[in-house]
Structure formats: structure tokens, C-alpha cells
Write a protein that binds this DNA or RNA. Structure first.
Lengths: 351, 351
DNA sequence: CTGAAAGCGCTAACAT
DNA sequence: ATGTTAGCGCTTTCAG
């Protein structure tokens, strides 16, 4: 502070890039009469600073309307408080509940969520992942797919904590919060068998997990002797699944296997379509035809009859995944990095 | 490069913080035998660099698996290539299409999207907005609400480009891509009047826009003389709206005004509930009761009868909003910063 | 508990 | 077309 004027002039041409000259921590510090680092501590670790300074800094923040620059903070501290979530698509997705829980849980701890859509085809996965890594997030949460081996390798190489969700895969990249699609499919077959159904069929979207679910369903049905004669009647529709697929699917199946008395659908949307079509066709549900969905959409309980479906706790998945990432970011160990959240068959009016 | 060994030793204790010692542009530059800034140019403005150097840099990137650090880049260039989107909630939202379009359009130009949920109550708006500004995004897209005047003021003060969507408000913060909820409500009243309905009613969620829509609907209905005797029969349900609200709403309205022959619902979800309840009650749709939804969900066309609804092009809104932000970020002017995308009444089987 | 110095990894500005 | 230099705004490290 005690510079000679001469020097000042000589050293003048500093701060060349000062354009937006935005409000910085230095300004706040100056106002509070402390060093920038002290102001930083007052904001980030208030317990490490005297009460008086804390007060002065807070007042300076208040007065100036200072908002910290997390880019700069993240660059310096290597903690961005950013978490990336990847879903196949956002519209009509069964992952919405998970995304909502993620955002909420993260926001409650000062983290922010970046959302990326990989598409069901997986064509954009590599580019998306590069864009994500470039932001150095504190974690990446994968819901749905991540086929690309290049992408998986890069993810591992980046050292960023990863949580895969909505599945239980044998070789997770890192952490895992999900359930077994195979168990689920088999459970539905047993459920229908116990309910007295003797000729089951299925409609599934062609995304990988749904296909695995329905393969397990078919296998279990066959071994229980409720798959009809020959192979199980199955109709495959393109992902993402829609009610239209369900309506069409029912007609196709009825045409191919008129004797069916139950249909397992890869999503509640498809099940809704089947229900609508059955009613249009004058087929009584559940007496002539049982319907089981998957996902337990909010609307499913309000249909007539209410839809029997398989519920997966998407909120729990999102919440848990967020916590795992934040624990890792805090340097804490995650107790149960591979976690099976299971599923529940919710029996309602369509069975 | 021509330092004396003595100097080297003297200046030695550099790079103190080298922990993760991540791969940086410097490493790539060294490998390609160019200055860091040249490597930077090769990656960001390839046309400003000779073919040979471009090749060398690209090879170095390839060999090392280098992924740029956009935190550092954003800090230096003041362009983060990040856009924040704010929605009330993500689940069961009519904005999904918009969010999808946003993500896609942004990703196609190397931008990333941050998603924030403000909640319908608006309680978290201030905190959310602060978290957003702290990341210095190149733009903020608001869908749904942003009541808080403090938040609005901060947004303006931050100088970040803003696009408000799904509405046409008189005093936009900055840019605007939406439609008039008042016009929409009135249009539905006229539509029902032309279809011969003489005693209309409405079920609306209590979010601000829906309420305005239905106020305009009621006013137009009254002036057309199709609101029944006295005030329009209207039932208000809490946002976000659900099929359950629709089922309940129909019973309430029927109880209060048994003579109604048409219901305008604030969302397709509510309309679905009304349709289901009508069928459960043995009320013929559309002969005894007409139903109009709002939002044109994918499933609406696949109901039986297919749902008449009001369609808003959410994809166009998202796409346009994204383009507006990117144009601003490029320093280009936006031609039509206030844009009315209108709406369409899609007549199907329920009227 | 407080502060000075040195960078985090990149790019704008100014040369050449 | 390429390079040099000086930051962007913050936090880590090391010293009092």
C-alpha cells in the first residue's frame, strides 16, 4: 500500500483483460478489510474464522451482491460441485423420478446437475462423454445405457467417480445402484402363474434391459409351462415405448396367439395402450386378459381398472447415487458401492 | 529453453500443487512441438493454423487421450458453453419436450445443459438462481415460473442472457419465447361454443399460468353465455396436476353442477383422469360430456376416444430458446427476441 | 486465526 | 501463422 507514485506510473499497465471487471472476492475482501483468502474462508469454512471477521465479510457480500465464481473455485480446488447425469432420452422416460431425486439431493448440498441425453442408439455417447469429462464433474451418474467401450475406458481413465443405475451388471465401472432385470422378469412370470394364468405373452421395447427382462420372463414362463405351445408370444417395439405400441402390440399378439390370457409389458405406457385397446376391442380386463406394466407411473393407479405393475424406487436410486458421489467427493468411503434396491410387484386391478 | 542450470536450481521449487498432475494442454503442445497457445488454436480455431501443425496437434491429442479442461477455458475466455434451464419440476412436466430440445440443440453446438428444479412453490428460487449464476453460464432459460423479484433483479444484474419460455409476459427480463395463456383459454371457450356446448366447466391446477388460462376461459365462456347460470363451475387442484385430480375433479363438478356438458382441463393428465372417471361412471364421451386437455402428451392420441387437446410446440420453444442464447453468446443480435409461437387446438374424439 | 505467494489450465492481448 | 506474456478468480501451501 506504500508505493511511490513513480512506481505506480511505471507499473501502471496492469489488468489488461479487465473488460467485464466483474465483482470478485478481492472486492469483498477489500470492503471487509481482510485478505482475499480470509474472505474465502469466511464463505467456505466459516468455523475457521473469527466471529467478527465472519460478520464483516457477510456484510460485504450482502452489500455488494457478490456471487462467487465456481469456475475459478473449481479450477483451483479441483472440486467442481457438478455432477453429470446421463439418460437415454428425457421424454417419456422411466428415469424421471431418479433425475428429480438427483437434482434435489444434489442441490440440497450445493451441487448442481448437468443433464445429458445419450439417445437409445448410443451414437452420441462418445461425444457426450467427452463433453462431460471436459467439465471435470465430481461424479457421473449413468442411467440406462453406456455401451461404448471407448467411453467406458475414458471414464475409468478420467478417475471421476461413476454410479451406474437401474441395473445390476456383472462388471460395473465403479459404483452401482440398481436391481436385477432377470429376477424381475422371472418374478412376473411366477406371479402370473400363481394368479392362474396359463398362456402368457409379452410386449417389449427393444432397449437392452427390457429385452433382458423379457427374456428372463419368457424362460421362466416356459419352465412353468405357461408360455403356450412353442415359443412365448412376444412382440418387440422400438424404444422409447409408447401407448401406441401397446395398442398395436395387443392386436398383433391376438392375431398370432388368440389364446393368450396375460401380457407383460416393458413399460406402463405400453400397458396403458394394451388396456385401451382391450377396452376398445371389448376384451374384459382382467377376467379375459391380465395386464402387467413396469415402472408404476403416477397415472397407473388411476386407470380403470388400476394397473398392476412392477415398481422400482427411482427416487431411492437417485438419492442414493447422489449421496455416493458426494461421499466420494468428500474423500469418504462408500459403504456399499454395489447396491440392489430390488423391486415390488404392485398388484392392482388388471390381474 | 536456454536457462542456465544454476538458475534452474535456484528457481526449482515451482509447481507446488502438482497432485493429480493431470494431462494439460502444455503436455500436448510439448508433444507436438508447438507453444500451448498454438495447440489451443489448433483445437478451437483450426482454420487459424497451418495444416502441418494441425496434424501434429491432433495426433498428440489422440496419443495422449487429452480432454480439454473447460473450467480453465471458461475462466480465461469468459465463455462457459454452459446453459442453465430452470423448470418447476421435472416429473410429469409439460416441459419435457422443451428440455429435450434444449439439450439436443445445445449439445449439437458443443454446449452443455444444467438443469435446476425450482419447485412450484418457488421457495428454492433464490438459492437455485445463486447456484446458477455462480457457474457463469452463457445463458439461462426459464420455463414455468420465476416469481421472486430478488431473483429477477439478480439475473438482470448478472448480465447473463435470459430466455423466458411458455408464456408471453408484459415485462420480460430479456428474451421471450412463448404464447398467450389468455388467448388460449378464450380460444377453447369459443371452440366449445362452436361445437354446441352450452354449459362448460373447468378443472385447473393452481399454478399461475394455468390459473390465468382458466380465468380467460371462464370470462370468454361467460360472455358467450355458455358458463351456466352464475359463475363458471371450476375446480382447482394442486400443481403438479395428476390423473387422480381429474377423477376427483369430475365427481366434484358433477356434484356441484350436474348439467355440465364440457370440461376444459389444465393438462392432459387431468383430462385423462376425467375420461377414466367418466367411463367408470357410465357417462358417454363425447356425447354427454366433452373433454379438452392441454399439452398434447404422446399418449393422448392413443386413448379411446382420443383426447382433444391444445398443442404447444415445446420442441420449437426449446430449440428457439437455445438458438437465442447461442446467438447472444456469439455476440450476434437476436432478430426477434420476443416470439409468439402460438398454439393449436387439436380436435380428436373427446369433443 | 490470518496472510503472502503461487498456481489451477487455459486464452486474450500484444508482439513478431 | 506462431509465440510471449499476463492474467481469468479462486484456493492450496506454507508462514506467521
Amino acid at each position: 500500500m506504500a508505493e511511490h507514485d513513480i512506481d505506480k506510473v511505471a507499473v501502471a499497465p496492469k489488468r489488461r483483460r479487465s473488460k467485464g471487471t466483474s465483482l470478485t472476492l478481492r472486492d469483498v475482501a477489500r470492503l471487509a478489510n481482510v485478505a482475499p483468502i480470509t474472505a474465502s474462508r469466511a464463505l467456505n469454512t466459516p468455523e475457521a474464522v473469527s466471529d467478527e471477521i465472519l460478520l464483516r465479510v457477510r456484510e460485504a457480500v450482502e452489500r455488494t451482491g457478490y456471487v462467487p465464481n465456481l469456475l475459478a473455485g473449481g479450477l483451483a480446488s479441483r472440486r467442481t460441485r457438478l455432477v453429470a447425469a446421463v439418460v437415454p432420452t428425457i421424454t417419456g422416460s422411466v428415469f424421471l423420478e431418479t433425475v428429480q431425486a438427483l437434482t434435489d439431493t444434489l442441490a440440497a448440498s450445493g451441487y448442481q446437475m448437468m443433464l445429458g441425453q445419450a439417445g437409445y442408439a448410443g451414437s452420441r455417447e462418445d461425444a457426450l462423454l467427452e463433453a462431460i469429462i471436459a467439465r471435470r464433474p465430481d461424479g457421473v451418474i449413468l442411467t440406462g445405457i453406456m455401451h461404448s467401450t471407448l467411453a467406458r475406458r475414458r471414464l475409468v481413465a478420467s478417475g471421476i467417480p461413476v454410479v451406474e443405475t437401474w441395473d445390476l451388471t456383472p462388471n460395473p465401472v465403479d459404483m452401482l445402484v440398481g436391481f436385477s432385470h432377470e429376477q424381475l422378469g422371472a418374478a412376473v412370470a411366477h406371479f402370473l402363474q400363481r394368479r392362474g394364468r396359463r398362456h402368457v405373452a409379452s410386449i417389449t421395447a427393444d432397449d437392452e434391459r427390457a429385452v433382458r427382462r423379457h427374456a428372463a420372463f419368457g424362460a421362466a414362463a416356459a419352465s412353468l409351462g405357461i408360455a403356450g405351445s412353442g415359443a412365448l408370444a412376444q412382440h418387440v417395439v422400438p424404444a422409447p415405448s409408447t401407448a401406441a405400441s401397446g395398442r398395436e402390440g395387443l392386436r398383433v399378439l391376438l392375431d398370432r396367439a388368440p389364446g393368450i390370457d396375460a401380457i407383460f409389458c416393458s413399460s406402463d405406457m405400453v400397458a396403458l395402450g394394451v388396456l385401451v385397446e382391450a377396452q376398445a376391442l371389448g376384451i374384459a380386463v382382467p377376467s379375459q386378459l391380465a395386464i402387467v406394466g413396469m415402472g408404476d407411473l403416477a397415472l397407473s393407479r388411476d386407470l380403470q381398472p388400476p394397473l398392476t405393475t412392477v415398481r422400482v424406487d427411482g427416487t431411492l436410486i437417485g438419492d442414493t447415487a447422489a449421496r455416493y458421489i458426494m461421499q466420494r467427493a468428500d474423500g469418504r468411503a462408500v459403504e456399499q458401492p454395489i447396491r440392489d434396491v430390488g423391486f415390488t410387484i404392485v398388484e392392482r386391478g388388471t390381474t
